[in-house]
Computed example of a mutant assay.
Amino acid sequence: MNESQRQLTENAGSEIFAAAGKASPPITVSGLAVAGVSLQDWVFIATLIYTVVQTLLLMPKLVKFVQGWRRG
């Protein structure tokens, strides 16, 4: 496989992953609706997940800030 074919293959793979990432939220919502989870419950679940992720991302920064503040 020459360089241009390899590059096309890599680009196609990344485009597939990007398309799958864009399609996953609607597919998840549709799947949950079919499973009997209402839209209100879905919004609650998404908000809960978002809050947990944001908290986990903020914790290392907060710990570092507090440690620096304690040291002076």
Rank of each mutant, 00 (worst) to 15 (best):
R70D: 10
N11P: 04
F65S: 08
N2S: 15
A19L: 15
E10G: 09
Y50K: 13
L48E: 05
T55C: 03
G21E: 11
V29I: 12
T28H: 03
Q40I: 10
G68T: 03
W42V: 03
A33E: 12
Q40N: 11
I27V: 08
W69K: 13
A33D: 09
I16W: 05
A19D: 08
N11M: 14
F17W: 14
R6W: 02
A19Y: 07
K64G: 00
G72Q: 02
G21F: 11
A18Y: 09
F44L: 05
T51F: 12
M1P: 02
I16L: 13
W69R: 15
L56C: 02
Q40S: 06
R6A: 14
L62T: 08
L58K: 03
L62S: 01
A35G: 02
K22N: 09
E3V: 15
I16M: 09
P25E: 12
I45F: 10
A19T: 13
I27R: 01
K64V: 06
A18H: 10
F44Y: 09
L56W: 01
F65D: 07
V43A: 08
T55A: 09
R70I: 09
E3L: 13
M1C: 09
K22A: 07
R6G: 08
L62W: 04
G68D: 02
E3S: 15
K64F: 07
A12R: 12
Q54F: 10
L56I: 12
Y50F: 14
Q67M: 14
G72N: 10
T47E: 10
S38D: 05
V29P: 00
T47M: 14
I45S: 04
T9C: 12
P60R: 01
R70Q: 13
G72V: 09
A18K: 04
R71H: 03
Y50C: 13
I16R: 05
G72D: 04
P60T: 00
S30W: 13
L48P: 01
Y50M: 11
V37F: 01
S38C: 00
G31Q: 09
I16H: 10
T28R: 12
K61Y: 06
L58N: 07
